[in-house]
Simulated assay, not measured.
Amino acid sequence: MKITSAQAWWVQIPIEADKQHVSDFGRLRTFDSAILRLETDDGLVGWGEGKNAAGSAGDYGTLVHLLNTEFGQRLIGRDPADVTYIWEDFYNGVRAGKARKAGHVMPDLARRGLTVAAISAIDIALWDILGKADGKPVWRLLGGAKSDRLRAYASGGWADKDNIGAQLQSYVDTGGFNGVKMRVGAMDGTPHRSAERVIAARNALGPDVELMVDAHGTYTVSDAKRFAYLVRDCDLAWFEEPVTGDDKIGMAEVRAASHMPISAGESEATRFDFRDLIVGRCVDILQPDPACCGGITEAMRIGTLASSFNLRLAPHLWAGAPCFFAGLHVCAASPASFMVEFSLGANPMIHNLSNDPVTVVDGMVAIPQTPGIGLDMNEAVIEKFAKKG
């Protein structure tokens, strides 16, 4: 089996005005991503996704160009079953042969960012093809699934202090979630205003619904510690990205100063970044995003690191359908996983791209049972919303 074509698109799907929200990324008017289609000589199609931004907070033209003109062309004629070696070849670049012989990486310069995002898209699509070729869901190829359903938490929460309780309670009522996440940080202006919203949320939800907060890395270390102190009685399940991923020493300082679990990783690429989070005692929960950490291959390696250090895995899945479905397989197969992120903000990139509805019932999401990543792609949506030029 050989790869015969690789095509990527910048897909930009508008969000209806009444469903838009405002965060530190601004007002989200569209949902964007780089969607990749690989095809083999026997007609199998694999779908992947690469990300270099959150939602619509960025441009995907450069990533798509990279996939179409460079990385994609290097895939033509290769066996899609060589998933690991394709990953390593693209990561090591011109020194891939030397790295294979030496038994350690010799990566290209500037190996993070767009390079790993492109590798991520390719890797997800390769696993999709491999599963379809074997007639098995990807989780089976990864070693099996620990359950056919996994616990999900509702990810959203942008309302002000007078409305945040009702917004989060609506998530609980809609999907039976017993865990919800809200946004804090720069969008509120000051730590005490974020704390007021969190306290209002906890009072509305009561003690039995788990409550997480996500600062998107927008606090300074001192403000993150101030916020953590102000919400010390709210029994938060985790404090996500309290400070920028560029300040791992600062993140460790926040963790040491607070009683609440710290989670991070959506801004990190490859197992090497997550190694640094772990050995620096920065986090309790690892949150790799399959569309930018290095795909399914690398997310599973990161899951192994989490398990090795008795940490937990909760992938960042605020993304399009290929990334979300890939994340379900990682969660199903990784012993360290315990929670699936389910977007409750307007996310047409998940729901419109999948012909089968993506739903949560009684707070649980079903793991795909069909071959590959289990995504029945709606190609008409890609054709309609792919940016031209």
Rank of each mutant, 00 (worst) to 15 (best):
S5A: 11
P14C: 11
P14S: 07
I15E: 15
E16S: 13
S23H: 06
S23R: 00
F25K: 03
T30L: 08
R37D: 00
D41N: 14
D42A: 03
V45P: 01
V45S: 00
G46N: 04
E49V: 09
K51Y: 08
A54T: 01
G55I: 11
D59C: 03
T62N: 03
V64I: 12
H65T: 15
R78S: 07
T84G: 11
I86T: 10
W87A: 02
G93C: 04
K98D: 09
K101G: 02
G103D: 01
G103A: 05
H104K: 08
H104F: 12
R111F: 10
T115D: 01
T115C: 03
I122Q: 11
L126R: 05
W127V: 04
K132D: 06
D134I: 13
P137E: 00
R140V: 09
G144W: 14
G156P: 12
K161F: 02
V172F: 12
G175E: 05
G176M: 09
N178D: 09
M182H: 14
R183T: 04
T190E: 09
P191F: 13
R193K: 12
I199N: 02
A200Q: 07
R202V: 06
G206N: 07
P207E: 14
P207D: 10
D208G: 13
L211K: 07
D214A: 00
A215K: 10
H216R: 06
S222N: 02
K225M: 14
L230K: 06
V231H: 09
V231S: 05
D233I: 02
A237W: 14
F239G: 04
E240C: 11
T244S: 09
D246C: 01
D247V: 05
M251V: 06
P261R: 06
S263G: 08
A264G: 13
A264W: 04
A269C: 12
T270A: 04
F272L: 15
D273K: 03
D276P: 10
V283E: 02
I285T: 09
P290D: 09
A291R: 09
T297I: 14
T297Y: 05
A299F: 09
W318Q: 05
G320V: 08
F324E: 00
C331V: 05
A332P: 14
A332W: 03
L344V: 10
A346Y: 15
A346D: 04
N347V: 07
N347Q: 14
N352V: 00
N352E: 12
D362R: 05
D362V: 10
I382F: 05
